[in-house]
C-alpha cells in the first residue's frame, strides 16, 4: 500500500507532465490552424472514439512531407548531428585517453575541469563563439596578425560554425563516458599485450579501443540525440543555408504561430529519434546489468 504511494508520486508526475503532453502534441498535430487563442481548432473530442477515428486528419503531415523545406531540414539535421558526433568523438578521444592515463592524483581535478564548463550556461558558451568566429572576430584577427591568412575567413553563419558549436558544447558529454570506460581498463592488459609481442599502436586497436567501446557508444548517443533537435546553435551560429529541424520547429511555432504544423514537425522528429533513444536505453541497461 505504502509502496504504491511511494511509486505513484514520481510516476504520476512524469505521466502528467511528460507523457500526456506528447499525446496532446499528437492530437494538435491533427488539428487545423485558426486565428484564435489558442491558434488551432481541435478536430475531435478525445472522449468520442468513433468521431476521433472518422475525423483523423493527417493533412499537416501530408504538408510536411510534400514540402521539401521540411524533408530537407530533417535530413540535414541528421547529417549535421552525425558529422558533429564523429568530430566530437575524434576531439574527445585523445583528451579522455590522456585523462585516463594521467597520474591518479590528477584525475579528479581533470574530471572536474571537464565538468565545469558544462555547469556554465549553454547559451553563454555558444554566444562566446560569435565574438570569435565572426568576420571581424578574434579568430580572424589572430590569424591575420600571424600572417597565416590575408583575407578574413567566413565561418560565422555557415554550417562549419554549427559544427564547431556542437563539438564545443557537447564535448563533456563525450569525454566523460569515454574517460569512465578508459579509466577502468587495467594497465596490465597493455603490458600483457606488449609482453606477447604487440606494438603499442596495435595494442591500442586490439585492446584499448574495443574495451572503450561502451564509452564510445554512450558518448555518441549522448551527443547525436540532442544535437539532432538542436535549436540554439544553428540559430545563433548557423546561417540561412543551415537547415536544422529544431530551428524549423521554433520558427514554425514562434514566427508563423502555426501550432498544428509545429506539432506535426515535433511528432515526426520524435519518431526519427525513437530508434536511437530506445537503443541507447537498452545499451545503458545492459551496461548496468553487466556491472
Amino acid at each position: 500500500m505504502r509502496r504504491w504511494l511511494l511509486i505513484s508520486v514520481p510516476y504520476l508526475w512524469l505521466v502528467v507532465f511528460f507523457l500526456v503532453p506528447f499525446f496532446i502534441v499528437f492530437k494538435i498535430s491533427l488539428s487545423d490552424i485558426a486565428t484564435a487563442i489558442p491558434p488551432y481548432t481541435p478536430t475531435f473530442d478525445i472522449t468520442d472514439i468513433r468521431g476521433f477515428l472518422s475525423q483523423l486528419d493527417f493533412e499537416n503531415y501530408a504538408f510536411i512531407f510534400s514540402d521539401s523545406l521540411y524533408v530537407n531540414a530533417y535530413f540535414s539535421a541528421i547529417k549535421i548531428a552525425a558529422i558533429s558526433t564523429l568530430l566530437t568523438l575524434l576531439v574527445a578521444y585523445p583528451i579522455a585517453y590522456g585523462m585516463a592515463r594521467a597520474p591518479k592524483e590528477w584525475q579528479p581535478t581533470l574530471v572536474m575541469l571537464v565538468i565545469l564548463p558544462f555547469w556554465t550556461s549553454f547559451l553563454i558558451r555558444v554566444y562566446a563563439w560569435i565574438g570569435i568566429l565572426k568576420k571581424e572576430g578574434l579568430l580572424n584577427l589572430f590569424l591575420m596578425n600571424l600572417g597565416v591568412i590575408s583575407e578574413p575567413l567566413t565561418i560565422m553563419n555557415t554550417t562549419t560554425a554549427v559544427y564547431i558549436g556542437i563539438v564545443y558544447s557537447y564535448l563533456p558529454f563525450m569525454i566523460l563516458p569515454l574517460y569512465a570506460s578508459l579509466e577502468k581498463i587495467n594497465p596490465s592488459l597493455l603490458e600483457a599485450a606488449a609482453d606477447l609481442g604487440s606494438p603499442p599502436w596495435k595494442s591500442f586497436w586490439q585492446v584499448t579501443f574495443p574495451l572503450s567501446l561502451p564509452g564510445v557508444i554512450a558518448g555518441c548517443f549522448l551527443v547525436f540525440i540532442p544535437a539532432t533537435g538542436e535549436f540554439v546553435i544553428p540559430d545563433l551560429l548557423g546561417g540561412s543555408e543551415t537547415l536544422m529541424i529544431g530551428k524549423t520547429l521554433w520558427g514554425e511555432f514562434f514566427s508563423n504561430r502555426d501550432w498544428p504544423v509545429s506539432s506535426a514537425v515535433a511528432v515526426v522528429l520524435l519518431l526519427v529519434l525513437v530508434v536511437p533513444i530506445v537503443l541507447f536505453q537498452r545499451n545503458q541497461e545492459k551496461q548496468r546489468e553487466a556491472a
Partner: peptide, 30 residues
C-alpha cells in the same frame, strides 16, 4: 519489479536526451 516499471524507467530516461524543442512544445500544449 512492479507493473509499469519499464515505462517508468523510460520516462526517467527520455528527458535526458529529448531535444528541448520537443519537451518545451509539449509542455506548452499541456
Amino acid at each position: 519489479r512492479f507493473r509499469g516499471r519499464t515505462l517508468f524507467s523510460g520516462l526517467i530516461f527520455a528527458p535526458l536526451v529529448m531535444p528541448e524543442v520537443i519537451t518545451g512544445l509539449s509542455m506548452l500544449l499541456l
